[in-house]
Design a protein around this nucleic acid. Structure first.
Lengths: 204, 204
DNA sequence: CCGTACCGATACGCAGGTGTATCGATACGC
DNA sequence: GCGTATCGATACACCTGCGTATCGGTACGG
């Protein structure tokens, strides 16, 4: 999976002298995001990524010009709404499913957010890429879930707790490692939704 | 307030050739924590702090040996339980007051946590100092508030929502800047407590 | 089968940061 | 008034990272 020698030239196989394939690009992006999660943005160097992916520093700079642009590209390539397809038919079901789903991706995404949280203050493009990749899609999907629940009449659209649901879920996701030293796994998040979020919305 | 020339020698007044006074030390600590909030841990340099406080780099290194030790000392000097003295007589009142209080300190503490969040992974002493200064005291005080509420019978000690209250409050505190671009001010936090936390606990 | 476009390796300039060492100057205790 | 401890200034060695430039080799298209 890393970068051994095989035979297929056009693929991400071996001699690596060909134009960068999408698979190869993904290896770069995986590497840099992994390293950022581990060491933080500042501690990651282009040279380190080059070494780790067995490419040349020149290649990275030729392709993406600077480190922040490179990282931003990596982030954008990960853009996806993890709980976009959720639709169980009930608000409670949707929220439980979202919690489970969030818990699944929690370690990776939470670490990334933490690691990039301050780098973002000094590079506009990086900030946009981060929102675009990790924040906005999930937020929109969650708001859609809530909107549907209100539309079905499961919860009063004026319920003041509604507006805090996203902040609660993302918040708990984010601080559990700090408070309890463990990631917010699916089980924990589902328990949280059932114990705190649903009751505040007046749901069973 | 910064460092102009006056007359009193023993105080933090002027010529600055005397031994470091506690007031002077506080200036160093203020400076480094401020800069860390602004730029992040890595971007802060000892030289920068020396310049900003008009002392010599030698002084900082003589006193604290290394950058992480210096920052850790600064953190420890800020140790305090912001909502330790809260006791309004009711759980709802205490939580409202804690929210108000947390909102007041939110900008500074949240920024610090964000800025140090990853530096902490690479320096044990720094990690301990951070918990000691910003996390543990508040967490303990909050748990004390909840314990008293349960003791008074305002909430069932077995209520599953109880265990999530700290994570809810700290979480929302932490992610509001990311989600809405504004700090979690007292008003916002109090509304949150009233709309989501109290109802989940079965309180009015 | 050849040309070109792209990759890999490497060296370089530049900037900045850490932590040390040296030296002169000055406040403070005695 | 004198000695000592400590500060301030500065220079230094060392490292690391960013981004550029150069050069040789190789895959791929025609």
């Amino acid at each position: 999976m890393t970068s051994q020698d095989a035979g297929r030239p056009g693929s991400a196989g071996t001699s690596r002298r060909s134009k960068i394939t999408p698979e190869r690009e993904r290896e770069f992006f995986d590497a840099v995001l992994d390293r950022i999660r581990e060491c933080g943005y500042d501690a990651v160097s282009m040279e380190g990524i080059a070494a780790r992916t067995r490419c040349s520093k020149s290649t990275l700079y030729r392709q993406w010009r600077t480190k922040p642009r490179f990282v931003a590209a990596a982030l954008r390539s990960r853009r996806q709404a993890r709980f976009a397809g959720i639709d169980t038919g009930t608000l409670a079901g949707d929220l439980r499913e979202a919690a489970r789903c969030a818990g699944e991706w929690s370690p990776k995404d939470t670490q990334l957010l933490q690691a990039l949280g301050h780098a973002v203050l000094q590079d506009q493009e990086l900030a946009e890429a981060l929102r675009e990749a990790l924040v906005d899609p999930e937020l929109a999907a969650l708001e859609e879930i809530l909107r549907r629940g209100a539309e079905r009449g499961e919860v009063d659209a004026g319920n003041p707790a509604l507006a805090f649901v996203p902040a609660q879920i993302f918040g708990v996701l984010r601080v559990r490692p700090m408070l309890e030293g463990r990631h917010a796994d699916p089980d924990y998040l589902v328990r949280f939704v059932e114990a705190a979020v649903l009751p505040a919305l007046g749901l069973p």
